[in-house]
Amino acid sequence: MSQEDHQASIQGSGEPAKNGSPSASDEIGHRAYWRANVRTLLSLLSVWFFVSFGCGILWVDALNAYSFFGWKLGFWFSQQGSIYAFVVLIFVYVAQMNALDRRFNVDEDR
């Protein structure tokens, strides 16, 4: 049992089923996994909303009062910054989900 697995079972949320057959503990683990998944999504999507709709559209005029190298800040967010943020968000998501899969014993290698 890896350290992460151990931690998960201490928290009582991801007890793995030893023989792979569907069981009540599997069911509970899956629900906890799904809740953790949705939490991850919501926090990443709030960043997504903040950089694009927030900095790039809603507050663009206010941010344009500041300059960022040769750009007005709001303009930079709407034409460059938000796109960089999107890329970073997906890779953070991949890392967090892979960790989550392992923690709850639901990754595809098992």
């Binding site: 999504l41 990443l44 999507l45 997504w48 694009s52 790039g56 559209i57 709407s78 034409q79 938000s82 796109i83 999107f86 968000l89 997906i90 998501y93």
Partner: peptide
């Protein structure tokens, strides 16, 4: 620029 790239975040996550 934002619309045609930000959609990928929705696609990848959801």
């Amino acid at each position: 620029l934002m619309g045609w790239t930000g959609g990928y975040v929705l696609l990848a996550l959801c």
